[in-house]
């Protein structure tokens, strides 16, 4: 399994040093849309940074996040084994790429120095009947991770009832509260469902989708389109300098809920929306 480890180290390098083309294209559109001023200047530097990072194979952002893996694992493969390969690959990638060591012990405040620790990296497994191992890696900076919000509907303070219009209000509230602190233009993932833990992971999973993906129920697609327009009317703009593009895309998904519960989670991702996939076997 030595080769899988090498593959994961390479995945780390690719995800840390380059952006998916759909994200980069939207950022180029955001640059073109801004009028002359500091927001446009800033977007120009953002685009230059992206190409410089790719060319010189250095991390786009110094915050390489909490490594988060979403894995589809074939039945015959041991999750424990995959986990230990990921841990070894994480140590190696931290040194080689390099990544910033981001795992800090709660009790001693010591940084482990290699991005591994108690339940770090974060790994979500899903067993499949497929014969290949599919590994999605997300390196999400924590400035934007801190900008995320969870809502319990109804939420009277924002006038949000238990319906899709209530969900719409939650998303607007989350972006308004984030202002420019999480590095806009943002990509958003939204999860709706029965329990607090479930909606957080569901929201985060949405960030793995292409931001221009338009599949699923038409009511959800319509809500996404409406929100994209409304969120950009907030005028927070690139990096929070004020301007036309605050959000470049969002994806929403839902689960069934409990009669008593209606949770909405909004996961906010910075412009450096770093994700990548390795298919093995």
């Amino acid at each position: 399994m030595l080769k899988l480890k090498d593959g994961i180290v390479e995945l780390y390098r690719k995800v840390a040093t380059s952006l998916p083309s759909d994200v980069e294209n939207e950022l180029k559109k955001a640059y073109a849309a801004e009028e002359e001023g500091i927001a446009k200047e800033a977007m120009g530097v953002v685009l230059e940074n992206i190409s410089l990072a790719r060319k010189t194979s250095r991390p786009i952002c110094q915050d390489t996040g909490v490594p988060t893996f979403f894995i589809r694992v074939p039945r015959q493969l041991s999750q424990e084994e995959v986990r230990s390969i990921i841990t070894a690959a994480t140590r190696e990638a931290t040194e080689k790429v390099p990544l910033r060591p981001n795992a800090v012990d709660i009790l001693t405040d010591r940084n482990s120095g290699d991005n591994t620790g108690r339940n770090i990296p974060v790994i979500y497994f899903e067993e499949t009947g497929e014969h290949v191992l599919t590994i999605d890696l997300m390196l999400k900076g924590s400035g934007c991770e801190n900008a995320g919000q969870t809502y319990k509907l109804p939420a009277e303070e924002i006038g949000a009832q238990r319906d899709l219009d209530g969900v719409r209000k939650c998303v607007i509230d989350a972006v308004f509260k984030a202002q420019g602190r999480g590095c806009p233009p943002y990509t958003l993932g939204v999860g709706i469902g029965a329990t607090k833990d479930q909606v957080s992971v569901l929201a985060k999973r949405q960030l793995l989708k292409r931001i221009d993906e338009r599949t699923g129920d038409e009511r959800i697609i319509a809500l996404q389109a409406r929100l994209l327009d409304e969120l950009n009317r907030l005028g927070i703009g690139p990096l929070g300098f004020g301007g036309k593009t605050t959000v470049i895309g969002l994806n929403i998904d839902y689960n069934h809920r409990h009669p008593a519960s209606y949770f909405v989670d909004v996961s906010v991702c910075c412009w450096a929306n770093r994700r990548g996939r390795l298919v093995w076997g």
Binding site: I158, G159, K169, I172, R233, L234, G242
Partner: peptide, 19 residues
């Protein structure tokens, strides 16, 4: 402060008096 105040106006309008 300026950006936050400006976005506050739109935010209130989008929430339709809920905020």
């Amino acid at each position: 402060k300026g950006v936050a105040e400006k976005s506050m106006g739109v935010y209130k309008e989008l929430l339709g008096g809920g905020a």
